[in-house]
Amino acid sequence: MTDALPLSVRALRKQYRRRVVLGGVTFDVRPGEAVALAGPNGAGKSTLIGCITADRVPTAGEVRLCGADPFERPREAAACMGFVPEQPFLYPELSVAELLRFVAAARGLDADASAAEAARLLGMLGLAGAEQTLCRELSQGMGRKTAIAAALLHRPRMIVLDEALNGLDRTSAERLVAELDARRATGAAVLISSHDLDFLAGWCGRGILLPSVGTWRLLEGDDWEAWRRAPSLTAS
């Protein structure tokens, strides 16, 4: 399984009643690369991510996370992936430290090592000192940082970020990108959706464009170079 691609999507189709949201999306994410997911509101970015994270059932097609089907082998797929949703879930009754301790225990991580990693991640994200704050007391940005720390704690091979940079201050965003670069250098891959097209164009090496009208496009090679010179949400 460790030799398998971090993410492989084949002929993925998603339909809500009669409305086709995703039609035959096919792409791979290779170790060490960052892939952009761009598109206007309602184009299907979150639906595509939902199909990858098993929060949506594809109408057809297949998804593999480190070679594991997230519906048939959910535990292997979960071990492969770290996901930060657009609206992260945090237990309001737990403190930041308790939440991260729970995540570490649920993933079967060594308690001491994960505590040290959690402290490092919180420090990196500017949350040092907020460990005892209840999640319900966190601001939107602090909540997102907590969700990011929870997603990165087990050093996933596939990192999926759905608008994860929204609400982060500039320093924290830069530190997060540096952390992601360090993870990529060790073989992790990143799929990131964002409305910050300039950031996507500057940081990612390939992209998937989901226009509101027309079919999806995989942007790589010359297509990607052309798009990153003038990023836009239109398919042309």
Partner: peptide, 14 residues
């Protein structure tokens, strides 16, 4: 359950 997706993504057995 509101935490269903969160727990499934952590790999908690069904």
């Amino acid at each position: 359950s509101p935490d269903d997706a969160f727990l499934r993504r952590l790999g908690i057995p069904a």
